[in-house]
Every structure is written in C-alpha cells, then in structure tokens.
Simulated scan of single mutants.
Amino acid sequence: MQLGTRWSMGERPPAAVPEALHAQIAAVERLIPADQLAHQPTPRWTLTWLEHRPVAELDTGVIVTLSPDGEVVVRKDDDTGIS
C-alpha cells in the first residue's frame, strides 16, 4: 500500500513524489501568476496513487500524473469550480 502526502506550492516535493513528476510540477508552479496568489493561502499539492501510478493535484485543479506508458501528463480538473 502506498500512502499519499501533501506539500505547499514552491516547496521541494517530498521523497514520495517520483522524480519523473518534479520537472512538470515546477513548470506548473512557474505558470501561476503571482497576483493570482496574493491575499490567498498558498495552494497545496496532494499526492495520491491510482492504479499504482502517482497523481499530484494542486488545489487549483491542475493534475500532474503518469500515463500507463510512463509519460508525464498535465491536465486541468474542470470539476473543481475554480476558474
């Protein structure tokens, strides 16, 4: 069984986060405008596992995961209600 973890945007991902996701997580963080973060709590990442693959989701609804063939995939969860 693999447990997930949480960390704040801008922090180094914990050891539980596969190295394959680190570059895309950093790229997502660079794309978020600083003014969007003003006067709000720092968004946090949540790492979970689905079918033995890591899924890192930012509170903004951005998801970084691995496809079944091992490629890093970035997508937006449109069900978050965040625009």
Results as ranks from 00 to 15, higher is better:
residue 1 M to S: 11
residue 1 M to A: 13
residue 2 Q to M: 04
residue 2 Q to Y: 01
residue 3 L to M: 06
residue 3 L to A: 10
residue 5 T to V: 07
residue 6 R to Q: 15
residue 6 R to E: 13
residue 6 R to F: 11
residue 6 R to W: 07
residue 6 R to S: 15
residue 7 W to C: 03
residue 7 W to D: 00
residue 8 S to H: 11
residue 8 S to N: 15
residue 8 S to Q: 14
residue 13 P to H: 11
residue 13 P to S: 15
residue 13 P to L: 10
residue 14 P to Y: 00
residue 14 P to R: 01
residue 15 A to T: 12
residue 16 A to H: 07
residue 17 V to S: 02
residue 17 V to A: 00
residue 18 P to D: 00
residue 19 E to P: 00
residue 21 L to M: 12
residue 22 H to N: 12
residue 22 H to F: 09
residue 23 A to V: 10
residue 25 I to D: 02
residue 25 I to Y: 03
residue 26 A to W: 14
residue 26 A to L: 13
residue 26 A to N: 12
residue 28 V to D: 04
residue 28 V to I: 08
residue 29 E to I: 06
residue 29 E to T: 04
residue 31 L to G: 05
residue 32 I to T: 12
residue 33 P to F: 06
residue 34 A to W: 10
residue 34 A to G: 08
residue 35 D to W: 14
residue 36 Q to H: 07
residue 37 L to C: 06
residue 40 Q to Y: 11
residue 40 Q to S: 10
residue 41 P to L: 03
residue 41 P to F: 03
residue 41 P to C: 05
residue 42 T to G: 14
residue 43 P to E: 14
residue 44 R to W: 06
residue 44 R to T: 12
residue 45 W to A: 00
residue 46 T to S: 13
residue 46 T to Y: 01
residue 46 T to G: 09
residue 46 T to F: 02
residue 47 L to G: 00
residue 48 T to R: 14
residue 50 L to M: 11
residue 50 L to R: 15
residue 52 H to K: 05
residue 53 R to S: 03
residue 53 R to G: 02
residue 53 R to N: 04
residue 54 P to W: 01
residue 55 V to C: 08
residue 55 V to A: 03
residue 55 V to Q: 02
residue 56 A to R: 00
residue 56 A to L: 05
residue 57 E to V: 14
residue 58 L to R: 04
residue 58 L to Y: 11
residue 58 L to I: 15
residue 58 L to A: 09
residue 59 D to P: 05
residue 59 D to M: 07
residue 59 D to W: 05
residue 61 G to H: 06
residue 61 G to L: 08
residue 61 G to Y: 08
residue 62 V to E: 04
residue 63 I to H: 04
residue 63 I to M: 09
residue 64 V to H: 01
residue 65 T to A: 11
residue 65 T to P: 01
residue 65 T to M: 10
residue 66 L to Y: 01
residue 67 S to Q: 06
residue 68 P to H: 09
residue 69 D to M: 13
residue 69 D to T: 09
residue 70 G to H: 11
residue 70 G to S: 13
residue 72 V to G: 04
residue 72 V to W: 07
residue 72 V to D: 03
residue 76 K to L: 11
residue 76 K to S: 09
residue 76 K to W: 09
residue 78 D to F: 13
residue 78 D to R: 14
residue 78 D to V: 15
residue 78 D to N: 10
residue 78 D to P: 12
residue 79 D to N: 09
residue 80 T to C: 07
residue 81 G to W: 05
residue 81 G to I: 07
residue 81 G to Y: 03
residue 82 I to T: 09
residue 82 I to A: 05
residue 83 S to I: 12
residue 83 S to C: 12
residue 83 S to L: 15
